[in-house]
Simulated scan of single mutants.
Amino acid sequence: MTASSPSNSTQVTPLQRRAIALAALTQAVYLVDSIARKGLADAEDSRALIESIFNDPSANDSPAEVYGGIKQLSTGIRISREILQGKSMPQTKALMSYSAGLLTIEQRLNKDHKMRSKLGEGMARIDKQKHYFGSAVHPSVCAAIADLYGETISTMKPRIIVRGKSEHLSQSENTRRVRTLLMAGLRAAHLWRSNGGGHLTLLLRRKAILRELELLQKSISLD
């Protein structure tokens, strides 16, 4: 893969796939934390993640295609780089906690056939709503995703506890947005694992993944 063509599926390596999945996961938890602390989340960053919930790539596709292109993950790439570089950010601890929780839940979900079936049936129903309303980010669609998350993923352990300001988290709209983005984060966690990522990957391959993230960021600036 050249720096200018990160989404070319014929050249995407397993390590590059993991870097893209990590960026998506980081972007999801970053937006969750932003809603919890400030009541805000970038609309376009959120849209790419929410739409990814409905996208099921073939084995030959780059994970970037799930998100509509690598540019849609620019925030996740930037934040992932800063974390791996050890830069001090007030939200780092929360982001790592949310990410670890989603990775653990996804791993357990992979072994829970009954829960996966329930989740799949629910998403098939919501997909019909998405087509009816014409948008994955329609309030009714997001509400349905949030409800499904509450009925399924919220019942699994470790339960992800989102911490922030009560004035934001007490609003039902923000609760729905948080749950929808956590569902998107779970999607990214699945891409991470299915492309060879694990809990120790960041520890053992930190420098290599950081290099891939730097290449991805360069490719965005070259477009």
Results as ranks from 00 to 15, higher is better:
82 E>Y: 09
197 G>C: 02
70 I>Y: 00
15 L>C: 04
112 D>N: 14
93 K>P: 07
13 T>Q: 05
28 A>K: 05
150 G>P: 07
33 D>T: 02
179 R>H: 13
165 K>C: 01
30 Y>N: 10
208 A>F: 05
16 Q>M: 13
6 P>V: 01
40 L>R: 13
53 I>N: 00
158 P>H: 08
216 L>A: 05
37 R>S: 05
190 H>A: 08
59 A>K: 03
18 R>E: 08
126 I>A: 12
42 D>Y: 06
46 S>Q: 15
198 G>H: 12
171 Q>R: 14
185 G>K: 01
1 M>C: 07
92 T>G: 02
69 G>V: 03
97 S>E: 15
213 L>S: 09
167 E>T: 15
158 P>G: 08
199 H>S: 15
83 I>G: 05
219 S>N: 03
34 S>A: 12
54 F>V: 03
183 M>V: 00
195 N>E: 11
175 T>G: 13
76 G>P: 00
94 A>S: 13
200 L>P: 08
58 S>N: 06
41 A>N: 09
142 C>D: 11
155 T>I: 06
207 K>Y: 09
171 Q>I: 14
161 I>H: 12
29 V>S: 00
39 G>A: 03
53 I>H: 00
168 H>P: 01
84 L>K: 06
156 M>W: 01
65 E>N: 12
46 S>L: 10
106 E>H: 12
30 Y>E: 11
194 S>H: 02
111 K>M: 05
171 Q>N: 14
172 S>K: 14
144 A>I: 11
71 K>T: 09
220 I>P: 00
46 S>C: 13
150 G>H: 04
218 K>L: 08
65 E>S: 14
47 R>D: 08
154 S>I: 01
131 H>V: 03
11 Q>F: 14
194 S>P: 00
135 S>M: 08
214 E>F: 04
45 D>A: 15
96 M>Y: 03
98 Y>E: 05
4 S>G: 08
209 I>V: 14
115 M>C: 09
169 L>R: 04
81 R>W: 02
209 I>E: 10
138 H>S: 06
34 S>Q: 14
61 D>G: 01
32 V>T: 06
69 G>A: 04
128 K>A: 11
57 P>S: 03
67 Y>Q: 02
151 E>K: 13
129 Q>A: 14
194 S>R: 14
203 L>C: 10
69 G>E: 08
171 Q>M: 14
198 G>C: 11
222 L>Q: 10
144 A>C: 06
58 S>E: 07
89 M>D: 13
164 G>R: 10
215 L>R: 15
64 A>R: 06
176 R>P: 05
52 S>R: 08
162 V>M: 07
180 T>R: 13
163 R>P: 01
7 S>D: 15
136 A>G: 11
127 D>P: 02
161 I>M: 13
216 L>R: 02
75 T>I: 10
78 R>C: 01
74 S>A: 15
39 G>N: 05
163 R>E: 09
189 A>H: 01
184 A>I: 07
